[in-house]
Amino acid sequence: MTVHNYKLTVTWSGNRGTGTSGYRDYERSHVISADGKPSIPGSSDPAFRGDATRWNPEELLLASASACHKLWYLHLCADAGIVVTAYEDHAQGTMNGDRFERIVLRPRVTIAAGDRALAMRLHHQAHAQCYIAKSVNFPIDCEPSIE
Rank of each mutant, 00 (worst) to 15 (best):
L62Q: 06
R121F: 01
P41I: 06
R24L: 07
H30F: 11
A133E: 00
L62A: 05
T94G: 01
I103Y: 07
T11M: 01
Y131A: 07
L122H: 08
A126S: 10
D35W: 04
L76M: 10
C77P: 11
H127Y: 08
R28M: 10
A133P: 02
H123R: 14
T94F: 00
H90D: 15
R121M: 04
L62G: 02
G81Y: 15
K134D: 05
S66C: 14
A86C: 02
R49L: 11
W72L: 04
S44E: 13
E27M: 07
E59D: 06
S64P: 04
H75Q: 07
K134C: 04
A113W: 00
A47N: 03
P38Q: 11
R28W: 06
S29R: 14
L8A: 12
T11R: 13
E88P: 03
A78I: 00
T20I: 12
Y26W: 13
D98F: 09
A112P: 15
G14H: 11
N137I: 02
S29I: 00
D45P: 02
L62R: 03
L8G: 09
R54D: 01
T9Q: 11
R106G: 06
D89R: 09
Q92T: 14
T110R: 09
D35T: 14
S44C: 03
S29K: 14
A80I: 03
P46F: 04
T9P: 00
R28D: 05
Q125V: 15
H90F: 03
Y6I: 13
P41T: 09
G42T: 13
R116Q: 12
L118Y: 03
L61S: 08
H90P: 08
V104E: 03
Q129G: 02
L8K: 01
A133K: 04
R108H: 12
E27N: 09
L105C: 10
T94D: 02
S29E: 08
D79V: 06
R16S: 10
A34N: 09
I103L: 11
A34G: 07
D45E: 06
F100T: 10
G81I: 14
A91D: 08
N137F: 02
S39P: 06
G42F: 02
N137H: 09
Y6H: 15
G81T: 13
Y23R: 14
A63W: 04
A63Q: 06
A67W: 00
N15M: 01
L105I: 06
A65W: 01
A67L: 11
G36V: 14
G114P: 05
V83P: 04
L8W: 01
A52S: 15
Y6Q: 10
A119M: 04
N137Q: 11
G93S: 09
F100W: 13
M120S: 03
V31G: 01
N96M: 14
I82W: 04
G114H: 10
R24M: 07
A34F: 10
T18I: 15
Q125F: 15
G93D: 08
R99C: 08
S66H: 14
A91Q: 02
D98T: 12
Y6A: 12
T11H: 11
T9C: 02
W12S: 15
R102Y: 05
H75F: 05
R116D: 04
G14T: 02
S66T: 12
I40T: 09
A47T: 00
Y87G: 03
A52R: 13
G81E: 09
L74F: 04
R102H: 07
A128K: 13
F100E: 10
R102N: 05
V83A: 13
L118A: 14
E58C: 11
G36C: 11
Y87H: 04
I103P: 01
P41L: 09
